[in-house]
Design a protein around this nucleic acid. Structure first.
Lengths: 148, 148
DNA sequence: AATTATTATATCGCGTGCGATATAATTTGT
DNA sequence: ACAAATTATATCGCACGCGATATAATAATT
């Protein structure tokens, strides 16, 4: 007969390795991002801005799955570093128009090496990466559908 | 020709969905763990103690992949809640002997429903869960081997 | 035996991440 | 038109998570 508490064991939980790998990733990124004077969260904000050119806070929150109480102070930091600028949207003054400064744009080239440096740190095959990617996005997309 | 910045796009990065799912997990656990007066990190500490009966701080740090500067204050909180007790190891006074109180032991039964409640929140198949589990532990185990 | 190195735990400061709440701008309902 | 609801952003307080560092206990070295 099985232990009544079996499912409460760490090794039988899927959530724990996700949590542990997530922490590990942040630690791996740190030395690379230190050179750009960015934290991991600031880095993914910059990634959105590099790609979109411009964004408001709501778009950033939705894209990154974060709340305004995380993103607002983060944008203040990025502004303090001179990477972004904030201005009120002309049409709807509730919206922030967040744009990159020249320094922020230039930072993109310095960041080019980060993805491949990180990839080297993780010993998984292309197939495993794809499987991981698909399962994780299945979870994230399901969440988006059910909580609009 | 490919965009030079292609790999810097959020959708081409594996790290981001891990980070996003990890945050999502914490949010999903919160209402369940609120009933036990535990945070997610406190919960995984309790899981180790429920299973091992007893532990020192070093073991907890290694098992959970955390540093003492995270675990020390956490143990202080759990002690304040009356779930654990700390005493000096008789043999080596550097070691903390961390044990469960009766309240801490009793909490295990209240936690029994948590794993299945959480499982219901995530729409993945058993095969996907297994694949996820194996890939994540491959990453974690590789890390343990290379950084002792 | 005394100095040095190592080990286990603790403290400090910073940057998230979030629930709750506040504020300002816009939209809706009547 | 104007009060009420909604929306976008901001503020507050708490709990991590970690790099750097400190402290106390033990082990290693000479």
């Amino acid at each position: 007969m099985k232990d009544k508490y079996e499912m409460l064991q760490l090794k039988n939980q899927l959530c724990f390795p996700i949590y542990a790998v997530s922490n590990l990733i942040t630690r791996k990124y740190k030395p690379l991002l230190d050179e750009l004077d960015l934290t991991y969260t600031q880095y993914i904000v910059m990634m959105v801005l590099w790609e979109q050119g411009q964004a408001n806070e709501k778009l950033l929150c939705e894209t990154l799955g974060l709340k305004s109480n995380t993103v607002t102070p983060l944008l203040k930091k990025l502004q303090g570093k001179g990477y972004i600028e904030k201005s009120k949207d002309a049409g709807d003054e509730r919206n922030l128009a967040i744009t990159l400064t020249d320094t922020g744009i230039a930072l993109r080239d310095k960041a080019l090496c980060v993805p491949e440096c990180i990839a080297k740190e993780f010993p998984i095959t292309a197939e495993e990466a794809t499987a991981l990617y698909q399962i994780l996005y299945k979870i994230l997309n399901n969440e988006k559908e059910n909580e609009p």
